[in-house]
């Protein structure tokens, strides 16, 4: 439209469809995330939020449509105007630049905290042990667990494990962070410490897409909020508007219920 192009969004999700068994879990989803933006995905369970998030790093590959991160189509290659699925080894190169934090932490139980964090930088990026360990120690300090480097995940609380998982993802210096309900598996009194780490991260300008049930948290942190239901985004826009004055009746009902439940 104009000659001075606005910076292209870091993430572009364009008309993504996904079928699982008999069900269509994603029915033509479009969503953008600008550089440095925090996008929160909310909505009732079964809406397709996690599936959409997992399409962004190709843990699941969409049946139709494209996901672009930093201008590159994820998990597929365009050839003669047609999309072909990439080989896993090629996808892994793309995934290295996209951090992901899971609901169940998924730390590697057979490795110490330090090895959990340094393994991928050394093995995937080819960093030296010394460099990787230095940065791991920095990151552990940032998430407030500098003294836990030699512990094993099983001996840490859920909140500590999730903070380690965030440090592990950050160790790859990702250009994008994905969070899949990062506090849903935590005891209520441990939720705060994980949310604080995510808030700190948002303040550094990291681009983040967060699937969450914590409406209050989303209000504080999100630039953009998108509400999903039944495989489509029913409402998206500036977080303050969407999360305080939703226009769609389903979003209204969802937000009212979430706030009543004390989230």
């Amino acid at each position: 439209m104009s000659i001075a192009m606005p910076a292209a969004p870091l993430v572009r999700i364009i008309n993504v469809w996904k079928r699982r068994g008999q069900n269509l879990v994603l029915k033509g989803v479009d969503l953008d995330a600008g550089r440095g933006q925090v996008v929160c995905l909310l909505g009732p369970s079964g809406a397709g939020k996690s599936t959409l998030l997992r399409c962004i790093n190709a843990l699941e590959v969409a049946d139709r449509g494209t996901v672009e991160v930093d201008g590159a189509i994820i998990g597929c290659a365009m050839k003669d105007g047609k999309l072909y699925r990439m080989r896993e080894s090629e996808v892994s190169r793309q995934r290295a630049d996209i951090g992901m934090v899971f609901q169940n932490f998924n730390l590697f139980p057979h490795m110490s905290v330090m090895d959990n964090i340094t393994d991928a930088p050394m093995r995937v990026r080819g960093e030296s042990r010394a460099v990787a360990r230095d940065r791991a120690q920095d990151l552990l300090g940032r998430v407030g667990l500098a003294h836990k480097a030699d512990s094993f995940p099983r001996h840490l609380s859920g909140g500590q494990q999730q903070r380690i998982a965030i440090a592990r993802a950050l160790a790859m210096s990702p250009k994008l962070m994905l969070f899949d309900e990062p506090t849903s598996a935590l005891d209520p009194h441990l939720v705060g410490e994980v949310l604080d780490v995510i808030k700190d991260l948002a303040a550094t300008g990291m681009t983040m897409i967060i699937v969450t049930h914590e409406v209050q948290f989303a209000r504080e942190i999100a630039d953009v909020a998108a509400i999903m239901a039944n495989g489509v985004i029913i409402e998206a826009g500036e977080a303050k508007e969407v999360l305080t004055q939703p226009s769609h009746p389903i979003s209204r009902a969802f937000l009212a219920r979430s706030l009543r439940e004390g989230h």
């Binding site: 790093n57 843990l59 896993e88 080894s89 892994s92 190169r93 995934r95 290295a96 630049d97 996209i98 951090g99 992901m100 899971f102 169940n104 998924n106 730390l107 590697f108 393994d119 991928a120 093995r123 995937v124 990026r125 998982a165 592990r168 993802a169 790859m172």
Partner: peptide, 18 residues
């Protein structure tokens, strides 16, 4: 082995054999 382990590993950029 919990399937989440393989997913976490893939998400970090490990190749399938790794």
């Amino acid at each position: 082995v919990d399937p989440g382990q393989g997913e976490a590993s893939k998400a970090l950029g490990h190749r399938p054999f790794q």
